[in-house]
Design a binder for these strands. Structure first.
Lengths: 203, 203, 203, 203
DNA sequence: AATGAATGAGTGTTCATTCAT
DNA sequence: AATGAATGAACACTCATTCAT
């Protein structure tokens, strides 16, 4: 069972991560930020260094936290869905909906990175697992003849690309995102692309 | 007619832009860079300020230059192509090929940005014009019944998204990009998605 | 009679002093040290402040403790010795031997100091009493004609200087110090310097 | 021939060294010092970093400069002097007089050091050369029978120890140092210690 | 026009000290 | 009495920008 100390400590950690997400989303990785994170988290600057070794570690902690969350919720929904079409929808919805809940995180992903040699490529790694699952589902459906034969991994990445683009556009827009509607539009497009050619069309 | 002065001056400007592109691609917008740009451009640091007001202006100049180039070459090829399928191919190839020639620029686009409140959204603006032309082509084709009815702008953006994703992945990969092959893969996918439902499919 | 409380309290104090000596000898007065002292003493950082007002006080306590010890043992041996030669030897041996037992303290003395405006001059004060006793012995011997007339205090300080130099060199050396041998070398030198001129030498 | 640039640059460097000496003598190596050195040198903080890589380098530059000066003047005077007695006097006077001219430097030497793992032992290295020359002179005199046989290096270090002690005491004293008088006192003491035993003393 | 030495505001990080438990 | 989490002042160093030459 957790001691009170542990509870407090975990609370602090997550407060700091939360504050850092806000601040990083505001201005990228650079720029006098430790002060702001501390203020936002309601602690003194020195306290940050009790919980994290340095600025980079805080940054990583934010990404790790949010990316893990995204990855896990994606996989969960992917597993729960049955049938390829539902799986594709689940995959896209997982991301579109998280983007609405946690705009700040997607804003961070959308902007900075090279600052740390971390990120953009790391981002791909976090993505990889759900993408590979999606690819597997595509492959299986192709084997069953439900969809036409296409490189399943490339296809999965295209689904990612379209979802990401949609999210980015929604972050720039002032109007509220509409995950369900966006998902259906994408799904319609993708599903059509995947259809096997009508057998009799040849002739 | 240009004076010799002007020629020299323009040459300097473009030397600086070229140097800055290299340096920015290396390390993002931040981090002790003015010195490096100056060295790379073969001028003294103070000289940079004769040609540009400050670091941000240099950064913008790089993006403006390369984005204009990208935009213009895209539009040119788009205009030259006849038929929707060729136009889509032209649009994608314009980007895929530039990404091979000017990796540094796409690397910049792929990484940093929030550092200046410029970029990602600015990027969209630069994109908009060719995208709208592509959308117009889609709309026209839909009117003629060559493809099914889909929101043309959204569809055009999806083409952009997939192209961009493909480019990003090729930047991360160690192997050489293959614009033509990539374009065909995308085109196959997109073209299938755009097909009107076979009239007889109903029954 | 001491209460159990007092005994515990004194024990803690001396544990802390002992830990502090080790740490100060390691790195001088500055640099993240309170944590280390606490760990070395096996108490929490806050506890240090129950026993000492601040870092400087701990530092002083170390010096006070060790200097008092040095002073007292010096005076003791000085008193116990009879005859000037033996007194000089006793004086030097007291220091040379302590330097072997308590290298850490001499290392502290040998290095830092200005850090606190304390020390080097304070050091002189602690030294003064035994030095004055040595000077008194020198004066008395001079009065008896056992040695020639020389400013006794200055002479005593020179004995101190040579002893100190010898100790410092032994701290830097990797080989073990040899107090007895060193003392005899110094004594031979000093004793020769103190000899009255042979009465008949004049002529 | 030196360009104006070089002259200015060398002037700056030595201004900074001079300022640093003053500041270091005031407070040891630690404590917010870069600001003070800059102010004392009449330049901006950033300028310090144009001339020196970091604080440690400035510190070393001060010591290198002053120690080289001390070493060179000592060797010079040692060479110029003829006869052992004059050489010993020259050696001591070189130091005693520099200590009067450059109190700050000797104050630095007298205090801090462990802060950088540099110094105290480095100090010995700088000293070594003149000390070895002095030792050589002692050895030669012993060979000629002018003085008695004593370990020449140890003897030379004792001369150093006494000189150093004398300087330290003069730094603490409020009255002006009197190099000539101090040197004669030391010389009298040392010279007596070095005398060969009168041949007839045996009996 | 061109230079590059000089500037100094701004930042991440450390560490002696405090204080609620 | 004892703890150790929290504090925040202090500090070395960087780097975009200026300006005398």
């Amino acid at each position: 069972m957790k001691t009170k100390q542990q509870v407090v400590s975990e609370f602090r950690r997550s407060e700091i991560i939360s504050a850092a997400r806000t601040i990083f989303a505001r201005g990228g990785f650079n720029a006098g930020i430790m002060d702001e994170i501390a203020r936002e988290a309601g602690v003194a600057k020195g306290t940050l260094y009790l919980y994290f070794k340095n600025k980079t570690e805080i940054y990583k902690a934010v990404l790790d936290h949010d990316m893990r969350e995204l990855k896990e919720s994606t996989i969960e929904r992917l597993d729960a869905a049955t049938g390829l079409k539902n799986k594709i929808r689940a995959f896209m919805l997982a991301r579109l909906e998280r983007a609405r809940v946690n705009r700040e995180f997607f804003r961070i992903m959308d902007s900075d990175s090279r600052s740390l040699s971390y990120t953009r490529s790391q981002y791909r790694d976090w993505l990889r697992e759900p993408v590979l699952q999606l690819a597997a589902a595509l492959e299986m459906a192709a084997a069953k003849g439900e969809i036409r034969r296409l490189d399943p991994e490339k296809t999965a990445w295209m689904i990612v690309d379209m979802t990401r683009g949609t999210i980015q556009r929604s972050l720039l827009a002032s109007t509220d995102a509409q995950p369900a509607r966006d998902a259906e539009f994408l799904l319609d497009f993708i599903w059509a692309a995947l259809q096997p050619p009508p057998p009799s069309r040849k002739r």
